[in-house]
């Protein structure tokens, strides 16, 4: 467990994807028909990548993330994580999950919350305490170890959720709009912190966001999606250098990439027509 991949990881060639999604469709049966949440999705995510999913509301970002994490099953297609079916990867505890809300247990202290996955996975005694403390230091909350969640601000709670997700050293971190509820200032600070953590832990991160600047600042690749049916319309490589910091946000290239993502979101991809057809949008009646 200490050096990541285990035997399977070493025998695979460099460049073997950590997450491989092939021809995935997802249809939800609802009272008044069916929602085509995802259609023909093909994605590969490499080890150590930071991939963002961006797209209008309802385009299936959360669904795609939940498919990777085996919280829901695809209607068609195959999701492979670390070379095994997503379900096997979940049972092997390959990924950590961070939701939009912190989802902390209010009867556990901050430290107790970070220990939760360790308790469940049978990590005991001093090893457990050491890891929990290390994670709290990573998110700079070690002074709050004995506080209860309700005594923390929203941003601090979200940092606890990140520490909790990292505590058992998952190979993949799945984050669904983790900073969505935070103000702009806090969000930017959290972005820098997350990058620092990512660089230190070398985890693979799949990150859902609504914010174009956030996606560009954090990612090595941005996957742009469109709604109804949910499809991938564009994938943009973010060739900004690292480490990224406040200066990154002022670079010419940063602005170009932000514009590129924005135009992709509007459906103006070179040589491609907008994917969302107006009649579908009208029929489902929700605004993306």
């Amino acid at each position: 467990m200490t050096d990541g991949g285990g035997s399977a990881g070493e025998t695979r060639a460099v460049g073997d994807p950590v997450v491989s999604i092939r021809g995935v469709h997802k249809v939800f049966q609802v009272a008044d028909g069916r929602t085509r949440a995802l259609e023909s999705i093909d994605v590969d995510i490499q080890r150590g990548e930071f991939v963002s999913l961006i797209g209008p509301s309802g385009c299936g970002k959360s669904t795609l993330l939940r498919l990777i994490g085996d919280l829901t099953a695809p209607t068609a297609g195959i999701v492979t994580v670390n070379g095994k079916p997503a379900r096997k990867a979940r049972l092997d505890r390959d990924y950590g999950m961070v939701f939009q809300a912190p989802v902390l247990f209010d009867w556990r202290t901050v430290e107790g919350n970070v220990r939760l996955p360790l308790d469940i996975m049978g990590v005991r005694g001093r090893e457990r305490d050491r890891r929990a403390r290390e994670m709290l230091e990573l998110v700079e909350l070690h002074d709050f170890a004995r506080h209860y969640p309700r005594q923390l601000s929203g941003g601090m709670q979200q940092r606890v959720a990140i520490a909790r997700a990292l505590a058992f050293e998952p190979k993949i971190l799945l984050m669904d709009e983790p900073f969505g509820a935070l103000d702009e200032m806090t969000r930017e600070r959290m972005n820098s912190e997350l990058l620092r953590i990512w660089e230190r832990t070398k985890t693979t991160i799949v990150f859902v966001t609504h914010s174009i600047p956030e996606a560009v600042f954090l990612s090595s690749r941005v996957i742009v999606m469109s709604a109804r049916p949910g499809r991938i319309t564009n994938v943009i490589d973010v060739d900004l250098g690292r480490p990224r910091n406040e200066e990154t946000r002022e670079q010419e290239r940063y602005f170009q990439l932000v514009t590129a993502v924005r135009e992709s979101l509007r459906g103006r991809v070179d040589g491609e027509t907008p994917v969302a057809s107006p009649d579908r949008t009208m029929a489902e009646g929700t605004i993306g």
């Binding site: 994490g69 919280l71 979940r90 049972l91 092997d92 505890r93 990924y95 950590g96 999950m97 939701f99 809300a101 989802v103 247990f105 939760l116 996955p117 308790d119 469940i120 996975m121 058992f168």
Partner: peptide
């Protein structure tokens, strides 16, 4: 979401009962 969190840990029913 708390139940999904437990699911993501592959927690047993027993663990879900006692810890959540």
């Amino acid at each position: 979401r708390a139940l999904e969190l437990m699911r993501s840990y592959a927690a047993s029913r027993w663990a879900v009962f006692w810890k959540l």
